[in-house]
């Protein structure tokens, strides 16, 4: 799989504070790459470094082989960015705002931007931007971003100010962009959204990359909660593919990947009183790194 964005040992230091520390990751062409982490975890710093708005203290970031700092202009020709904090030109109408931003890219994409804004996101472009609500401003910026004829879209919290139906539209637009071969970096706090659309998810904590999860593998994984009549067995057959996550007397919680039939066959022969099989949502994975009782010393960054 072709790598389109690479960061290697990326570090950004402000005095004694590390906004990013030794971040190395790869984003593949055509995938939706989710960036997860609480505020201050380094998501926006990573994005701004990729866009060449911030110079890394150490390490390097590149987009399609172009250095994100030295070749920043060429990088931004290939990337469209939706900022997390939207500040617009309030004195311009919606039309003029889109026109202005399209003109900065040589006037390309204006018609499509208007189409997305008016038909899909149902925005009144005749109004001045200062009359827009926060959600409407976000829709305007989204229309702009999705209309750019670029290879990479970077969306920093794109649904934060939107109502549920508009969120669905945005997720559809992301999936549509992916189907057209665009690569999307989707940074957000709503785990269900990231889980739904992402191919891979990176979880960050305090400027460090803690985990990268392949969501396709994860969607195939299932969680098994079984309660035995006696004590739960200490060992399971290796070919079952069970990984014990939690053990509590007669009860065990396991993660399973593999053939479901062999698993059910095995459990049918065991003295179990109850069994529940389901999937694990991203929350549980996220909480491994960000629940209140997690300590830094217990975690090992990638």
């Amino acid at each position: 799989m072709e790598t389109i964005i690479t960061t290697f040992g990326l570090t950004k230091q402000y005095g004694n504070f590390f906004a990013l520390r030794n971040l190395s990751l790869e984003v593949h062409r055509g995938e939706v790459f989710g960036l997860l982490g609480p505020n201050g975890s380094g998501k926006t710093t990573t994005i701004r470094t990729i866009l060449g708005l911030i110079k890394a203290s150490e390490g390097r970031a590149s987009v399609m082989g172009l250095d994100c700092w030295h070749d920043s202009l060429m990088v931004r020709e290939r990337v469209s960015y939706l900022p997390g904090e939207l500040r617009m030109f309030g004195y311009l109408s919606g039309y003029k705002h889109l026109k202005f931003l399209c003109d900065l890219r040589g006037g390309i994409g204006y018609d499509r931007a208007v189409q997305i804004a008016e038909r899909i996101l149902e925005l009144d472009l005749k109004k001045k931007v200062r009359q827009y609500s926060t959600g409407m401003k976000q829709k305007l910026a989204l229309a702009q971003t999705f209309s750019d004829p670029v290879e990479i879209l970077i969306l920093d919290e794109p649904t934060s100010a939107l109502d549920p139906s508009a969120r669905e539209l945005v997720l559809d637009l992301v999936l549509n962009a992916k189907s057209q071969g665009q690569t999307v970096i989707f940074s957000g706090h709503v785990l269900s959204e990231v889980e739904r659309i992402s191919d891979r998810v990176a979880i960050m904590r305090r400027g460090q990359l803690m985990h990268i999860e392949d969501m396709h593998t994860r969607r195939c994984a299932r969680m098994v909660l079984a309660r035995f009549e006696g004590d739960a067995p200490q060992d399971f057959p290796d070919d079952l593919g069970l990984i014990v996550r939690r053990r509590d007397g007669r009860e065990i919680l396991c993660e399973h990947q593999g053939e479901i039939k062999s698993l059910l066959d095995w459990f049918s022969r065991q003295p179990i009183s109850e069994i529940a099989i389901g999937t694990e949502d991203l929350r549980e994975l996220y909480d491994r790194f960000h629940s209140p009782d997690v300590r830094d010393e217990d975690l090992l960054p990638i």
Partner: peptide
Amino acid sequence: ERGTMDMILSRPVS
């Protein structure tokens, strides 16, 4: 300060 620079310099503007 206004935050409008992000809008402009995230485009291909040197």
